[in-house]
Amino acid sequence: MSINATLIGQMITFALLVWFTMKYIWPPLFDSLEERKKKIADGLAAAEKGQESIVLAEKKAKQVLKEAKEQSSEIVSLAQKRANEIVEESKHTAKQEGERLIISAKAQVEQEIQQAKEGLRKEISTLAIAAAQQILGAEIDKAKHQDILNKVSNQLG
């Protein structure tokens, strides 16, 4: 149980162990630990950044989608408006055309009536003459009325 030179031997061993640990063991292991810590921290930071950019991209995508929706609805309303306009316009032209057609038809009818009237007028005179001839034929003697015929002929001539 006595204290003896073992103490000195142990102190030397201890000093050697501490020296060796300080020189060859602690630095490389500790450095690798620190390096890994840094790597992990970097990785985590990058992951966070990625997440952030995802959120940002999502936001942007939403915005773009919203804009696109707005645009499309605008386009649709515009198209609707235009379509309405076109319909209105075509209605208008149709109406005009119709009126125009009606007017021309009326004019044609008028003309045809006039023509018919003209034709009738012409034929009436012929018919009247024929009828008159018929009537006169029975009563009129050519010799008897030679004077009148001659007068007419003279008039014509």
Partner: peptide
């Protein structure tokens, strides 16, 4: 369990 060992360390 040897005082020499423990004292060597503590004296260091």
């Amino acid at each position: 369990t040897d005082l020499n060992a423990t004292f060597a360390m503590s004296i260091s």
